Simulated assay, not measured.
Amino acid sequence: MNSYYTPPGGLPDQKTLHTGRAVFTEAYAVIPKGVFSDIVTSLLPNWANTKCWIIARPLTGFSETFSQYVMEVGPGGGSDAPEPESGAEGVIFVTGGLLILTLAGTEHKLETGGYAYLPAGQAWTLHNRGSEPGRFHWVRKLYEPAPGIPAPEAFVSSDQAVAPIAMPDTNNAWATTRFVDPNDMRHDMHVNIVTFQPGGLIPFEETHIMEHGLYVLEGKAVYKLNKDWVEVEAGDFMWLRAYCPQACYAGGPGRFRYLLYKDVNRHPRLRGPGAFGR
Rank of each mutant, 00 (worst) to 15 (best):
G219H: 09
C248Q: 07
R186H: 07
G219R: 01
L260K: 14
V194Y: 02
V191I: 12
I209S: 04
M185V: 09
G235L: 04
I193L: 15
L214Q: 07
E218V: 09
M189E: 11
F237A: 13
V222P: 00
F196I: 06
Y249M: 10
F204V: 13
P203M: 00
I202H: 12
H187S: 06
R241K: 15
W239K: 06
G235V: 04
W229K: 00
Y258C: 04
E211D: 11
Y243P: 02
M189R: 14
P253H: 15
P198E: 11
V232E: 07
E218I: 08
A221K: 04
W239V: 02
E218L: 12
V194C: 11
H208F: 04
Y261I: 05
M189W: 10
H208W: 05
G200P: 06
F196V: 03
K220M: 06
F237H: 10
F204M: 10
L214D: 05
F204I: 06
Y223G: 00
P182L: 07
A247R: 04
E206I: 15
Y258K: 04
D188T: 15
D228T: 08
C248V: 15
K224S: 13
G219P: 00
L240V: 11
M210R: 14
G200W: 01
M189T: 14
N183H: 11
F196P: 01
R186A: 08
R257A: 08
M238V: 15
I202A: 14
V230L: 04
Y215V: 11
E231G: 11
E218K: 15
G200K: 03
G213T: 01
G213P: 03
H187Q: 07
M210D: 14
G199T: 00
D184P: 03
M185E: 09
M185S: 05
V232Y: 09
D188A: 09
M189I: 13
M210K: 11
V216C: 12
L260S: 12
K262H: 10
H208K: 10
Y223H: 05
P203D: 09
F196S: 03
W239N: 07
D236S: 09
G251Y: 15
P245H: 02
G254R: 11
H190P: 00
D236P: 13
N183P: 00
Y249V: 13
R257I: 01
V216E: 05
